[in-house]
Structure formats: C-alpha cells, structure tokens
Nucleic acid binder design. Structure first.
Length: 724
DNA sequence: CTCGCAGGGGTTTTT
DNA sequence: CCCCTGCGAG
C-alpha cells in the first residue's frame, strides 16, 4: 500500500511524481522539495507496478544523500527488503568493477587510491621516465584527472595533444595507468572511467547492468561530468527511462569536471523529455530568497526559472564588517551566543560557511572563547590522519598484496630499517620474478645487495603478514585491525610522540569503525571495509555533530539547511576566489556557490567580511565581495564592529552595535586612501582602513598603532598623510 | 638507513 | 604559514 501524502504535493511536484516513464527533467530550485519528489516518484513506480524495485537505480552525489533517500524510501515502501538500489556514482562503479573488473585485468580486491597515493605513484612514474623539462607531479596528476573526467584515454589524449607538454603528459598518463594495473589499484576517477571503458567494450556486461537500471534516476545532475553523463546515457540506453533532477544555479563542481551543459542540454539529448520546474521554495524567508535571487540573476548561463516562497518576509540579511578575521569571528561567535540566549535557539541551529578550509581556525578560536560547542565538517579528514593512514596501509596490503604504494608506507611505520634502497630491491625482485611486492619482501635474503639485518626485518614482517593473511578470512575486521595495531609496533611507536594520546585515540576510533562495520553484518570483509573508508564523504559525518554548531566550506553545504546561516569572508579574492578571477565562467561558478550558501538559510542570514585578512603569514587589506554589491540594499542591515569590546563580556543589548546602515561603501577618495599611513594630533600614527560617505560627512576608520581603531569625521580629524 | 634541519615553494573547493 | 625536498650527520 502506498503511503504517499499526495495532498501535500503542489501541482508541479505532483506532475513530476506521476509523469510516465521516459526521459524526464526535473529542474528543482533550492528548497523546493526535490528529495520528496524523487522518493515519491520511485515509490509510485514500485506501487503502480511500472517497475520492480530491482529495476530501479537511483544515483546521488554523496553517501549521506543516498542513505537519506534509502531511509525515506523504506518508509514509503512496505516491503523493506525491496528498497531499490540507491548509491553514489563512485560506489556503484566500485561495485560494478569488483564484480566485472576482471575483464580489464583487475581483481576484485583492487585498492582505491586517494589523491596523496595517486600523487606518490605519479612521482614514481616521473622518476623512472627521466627526461629534461619534466612537468610538476601535481600538474600531471591534475591533467590526468581532468582527462579521465572527460573520458579521454591516454591514446585519445595523445592524439589531441597540442604541444610537447600535453603530449608528454599523455605519455605519463599511459605509464601511470600501467603502473596502477600492476598494483591492482585505481584512483577515484578510475572508478568512473574504468566502468565506462568496461561497459563500452563489453556489450554483454553492459546488458547485464542495464537490467539494474531499467529505471535510472540521477540526482544533482548539474554536477555530473562527462564520464558520469556517458555512464547515465549508456545505462539508460535500452529503456530511455532516465529521470534527472538538478538545478543549474547550484552547479559548483566545474573544477572537478562537472559540465553544466549536461543539464542545460538535456532537452536536446532527449527532445521528447518531459520537463518540470519546481519553483516554490519551502525553506527560506522572502527576504533570503530575494537576496539570493538578486545575486544569481547576474549569471547568464542559466535556465529561465524563478524561485518564490509563500513564507514570511523575515528579518533583513545582516552584513557585518570586522577589522580583522579575529573580529569577524568574534562577531559570529557573539551573535550565536546572543541568539542562543535570546531566542531559545540551540548551537545546532547555526552553521558557518566559508570559502576555504583555512578560514575555520579564527572562527574556531572565537567559538572556543565563548564556549560554544562546534564541529568542523571536512578539513583534514579523519582517514587522512597520519597514524590512521599508517594503519590502513597494512590493511590495504593484506587485502591487495600488489599495492606497492601502501607497502612502502607500511614498512616505514614504524621505521624498522627498511628504506628507499631496500624498497627498490623489493620492487625489482617483484617484477623480475613476477610476484607481488609482499612476496618479494619475504625473499630478500637471496638478494646480495640487501644487508642481512634488513632482509631479516623484512622477512619477519612478511611472515607475520602472510600468517595473518591466512587467518584473516575467519576474523572480524575489528580483530584484524587490533592485531595490526599491536603486532606491527605502530601503536607502541606513537608513545614517543608529544601528542601520543590524541593519536592513539584516532586508532581507537578506527577500531570502533571496524566494530561498527562488523556489527552491520553485511557479509563484507576487509576489502569492503577499506572501500567504505575510501569513499566516505565529509558530509557523511554531519550526524556526529549532534547538537553542536557546524563549520564547513560552501562546497560541503549543498543539500543542507539551517535556521541561521553565516557566510564569512565575503571579500574579493577570497570569495570570489582569486583563482577564479580569470574568466567570467569561473566567476559565475563562484556566484552559484554564493547562491547555494545563501539558500541554505531558513530564518536568518549573516554575511561577514573584514577590512584586512592575514593570509600565508602576511596581512593584506581586503575589499568587499562583488556579490554583496549585487544584493538589493533594502534587504541588508549593516553592522559595524563595536570598539574595545572585551570578548568575554557579553555587552548589554542596547550597546550591541554601531548601526551605520545609512552609510555607503565609498571608494578611495576624499583626501585619504584606504591603506595610507596617517598622523593624528591626539592618536598618533595609524593606517586608514576604510572610508565611508561623501563630502563633509566623510568618515574614516583608522587603526592607530597605539590607540586602536577609531571612526573619525575627516572634516574635523586633521589627518596628515605620512610616508612609511 | 634514519633523523633532523634548513630552505624553497605553494597555497580552493573534493567524490 | 605549512608541507615537501634535499642534504648532512650519526
């Protein structure tokens, strides 16, 4: 029996849910009930008998989104064992390759390399292919990834190469792929690319997987890249039952190969596509929607679509400027503190977004000063911590003894006298005798140029690993992890470190993750555990934030919503980022990112920036982001920093702000320039930080070396410019 | 072979 | 500011 609450759907949502199978494009604005439409549509397909659950594949962007959709579906479909296959692109591809990768000469235990591992392999390739004028490893890695995102094989890349550099990179790409194959390893992009190669070259395998995708639904379609696009088309080819959902205004992964044209041109690919526009927003206030709209309307690459809401008007968007990032952060923390006190809000109702991870530090410090519990989503991921990666390297070798990159890491953690030279010997022996590096490690004593001591150490390690490898199939993952931590000496070696406790806790956390995996009882072994770790996404951890305020990058914010949202660092060069300043296309992407961030807010939105910001050790003056100027001024409330406010004493309400909402942002002018050094009769030397207003009412914020920040009316201030 | 230190270089976003 | 690399000493 269907449990759809059809009466809750608006007409467009209703039409999208009940549209007949075939090509369907759902343009879903921010907060327009997209997930509900998607899950209802799936439930309806099952309920009406148009498709069996086994025929349906829904692809999302993050594991979290997939988990959420599965959960919602299990509430809609009576038979919980018959919930359709809901997965991310990467996980789905990993499953396909584990099963059928043999056709590409990979066995089912292939390793999944993260970016650092992949870079290490590229460094090795570069070392072997010595030639003058080699491109930097990082560049090679980026170009190879780009090629894979566009579904270019090494030979196609070589054919299209313009100039020697591109041709050389194409050669390195070929060598890199070869090395990955001998290691039985794939990088992230390979998961997609190799799946495409597999399905493209093996029609009978394709047909088999098409059966799982007789109804194919793709979420976040605006962020699919070329390979994902090709995969979706290919899987849907036999039935054409392809339903894509997305919002071109929320396409923010161009740098990762996402091609906004995939969604813009869907109707060209499928001329008979039915198109539905979800334009009613159920999330935000009218003010927030209007502010976000005034920003995004400056983009040209978009479909005709207007978001609206029946919600209340709400409060103005608050725009605060701090002198430095510290003041900006104190304001954010202060507001959170005040709102928690006044409004019965809880820390979990707040989120702070920023463009770059490095911005989190100042904000964290301010939250700590105010004792507001917070949680940073993303940043250095747990599984990227050194000691965790060290332990995982053993597990990866156990699962896949061909994984030389992990073996290199493993033998050095803790150091046991096996270094670069010995590893070279291992690698040479492995290829000469056509055995895995792990087996080669056990035969080092036959090699004359390796010291006996070293060979003995290697052989001891080998013997234990082989023994464990033999017992492994009957052990829970947790026991394997525990034995590795203890027997390898890794846990003990941490004792010598200054932060031993923290690092040991991380190993404990890994043990806990293994226990949880065992408890799920999916029948998976070490390979599946490692795959899960490789493919976890930062947003997957948000649930762990439990009650705390959240901090994350704008990219991570997609798909989330919070009552109160702060976007910090609204400054030229930071947001939009200076790396995106080259082209209008990239600026448009930054603008979409701004739009995504703003539309996460339900009730209240804060935009903040600074007059000067420290980056890479030097302090630079900053200018407001162009996106601020794009927001209708009537929607904004300007707030300036209060001077000399001690951070730990909450000020009285009446003294909270200096409101200068009537002042304008002025360019340099009227006698003093921002950044100029000046002398004041009473306050002494200082630097002009900001100039506001015009004519006789022109005021300047001046940061005095001794007296601190002052707001002065220029007409009376008698400022005298001085040389540095 | 490992470790510690100095110096240089690079700094966005992440499945 | 942080990370990586290269180099010299133990």
């Amino acid at each position: 029996m269907l449990r759809l609450k059809v009466e809750d759907l608006n007409p467009e949502q209703h039409a999208a849910v009940f549209a007949e199978p075939g090509p369907v494009l759902i343009l879903a604005g921010a907060g327009s009930g997209k997930t509900r439409v998607l899950t209802y549509r799936i439930a309806h397909l099952v309920d009406s008998g148009k498709a069996a659950p086994e025929d349906i594949l829904a692809v999302t962007f993050t594991n979290k989104a997939a988990a959420e959709m599965r959960e919602r579906l299990s509430g809609l479909i009576d038979d919980h064992r018959r919930v359709p296959w809901v997965s991310t692109f990467h996980s789905a591809c990993a499953r396909i390759l584990r099963q059928d990768g043999r056709a590409l000469e990979f066995n089912r235990d292939f390793s999944i390399l993260d970016e650092a591992d992949s870079l290490a392999v590229i460094r090795q390739v570069l070392e072997d292919a010595v030639a003058p004028d080699m491109p930097a490893a990082e560049l090679v890695r980026a170009r190879i990834e780009q090629a894979k995102n566009e579904a270019l094989t090494p030979s196609v890349m070589a054919d299209r190469a313009e100039g020697d550099r591109d041709a050389r990179i194409a050669e390195l790409y070929a060598l890199y792929q070869e090395r990955l194959r001998t290691m039985n390893a794939m990088d992230f992009s390979d998961l997609l690319m190799n799946t495409w190669i597999l399905l493209d070259s093996q029609p009978e395998i394709l047909v088999r997987w098409q059966r799982y995708a007789r109804m194919l639904l793709v979420d976040e379609y605006q962020d699919t890249n070329r390979v994902q696009y090709l995969l979706a088309r290919m899987l849907a080819d036999s039935t054409r039952n392809l339903c894509v959902v997305g919002d071109e205004d929320q396409s923010i992964y161009r740098w990762r190969g996402a091609d906004i044209r995939n969604i813009l041109d869907f109707e060209r690919d499928y001329p008979d596509a039915k198109v539905f526009k979800l334009e009613q927003n159920y999330r935000s206030t009218k003010t927030i929607i209007a502010a976000a709209a005034s920003v995004i309307q400056n983009n040209t690459e978009r479909k005709d679509k207007t978001l609206w809401t029946a919600n209340e008007i709400g409060d103005p968007v608050v725009y605060f400027t701090g002198l430095t990032e510290r003041e900006e952060a104190d304001f954010v923390a202060g507001e959170i503190g005040l709102l928690i006190g006044d409004q019965a809000l809880r820390p979990r109702d707040f989120v702070v977004f920023y463009r770059t991870n490095s911005q989190s530090r100042a904000i964290e410090e301010a939250l700590v000063r105010r004792r507001i519990p917070y949680y940073v989503v993303g940043g250095t991921r747990f599984y990227d911590r050194r000691e965790v990666k060290d332990l995982l390297s053993y597990l990866r070798v156990l699962a896949n003894p061909a994984d030389f990159i992990s073996l290199e890491r493993m033998v050095g953690a803790p150091s046991r006298g096996i270094g670069g030279k010995t590893l070279e010997a291992i690698s040479a022996l492995a290829s000469k005798q056509a055995i895995t590096p792990l087996d080669a490690m056990g035969r080092l004593e036959t090699i004359s140029n390796v010291a006996l001591r070293t060979a003995k150490a290697a052989s001891a390690l080998y013997t234990w690993m082989r023994d464990l490898g033999g017992r492994m199939p009957t052990m829970p993952v947790r026991e394997i992890v525990a034995e590795v931590a203890a027997q390898s000496g890794l846990a003990a070696s941490l004792d010598a470190l200054p932060d031993a406790n923290e690092r040991k806790q991380n190993l404990d956390e890994l043990l806990a993750a293994a226990s949880a995996f065992d408890a799920e009882n999916t029948g998976g072994g070490l390979t599946e555990f490692l795959e899960r770790i490789a493919l976890v996404n930062d947003t997957d951890q948000i649930d762990e934030a439990a009650g705390r305020a959240s901090l994350m990058t704008l990219h991570t914010s997609k798909g989330l919503e919070y009552p109160i949202v702060f976007i910090a660092g609204m400054e030229e060069g930071l947001f939009p980022h200076s790396r995106s300043a080259d082209s209008e296309d990239e600026i448009e992407e930054e603008r979409r990112l701004c739009y995504v961030g703003m539309t996460r807010a339900r009730r209240l939105l804060y935009l903040t920036n600074t007059l000067s910001r420290e980056m890479f050790g030097t302090r630079n003056s900053s200018r407001p982001s162009r996106f601020l100027a794009e927001i209708d001024g009537a929607l904004l409330r300007r707030i300036a920093p209060e001077r000399n406010r001690p951070v730990l004493n909450t000020p009285a309400l009446s003294e909270r702000y200096i409101d200068y909402s009537d002042s304008q942002l002025a360019e340099d002018g009227d006698g003093v320039a921002v950044g100029a050094r000046v002398m004041h009769p009473t306050f002494g030397r200082g630097v002009v930080r900001r100039v506001e207003g015009r004519g006789s009412s022109t005021k300047a914020w001046v940061n005095f070396d001794q007296a601190g920040l002052k707001l002065l009316v220029l007409k009376f201030a008698n400022l005298v410019p001085i040389a540095e």
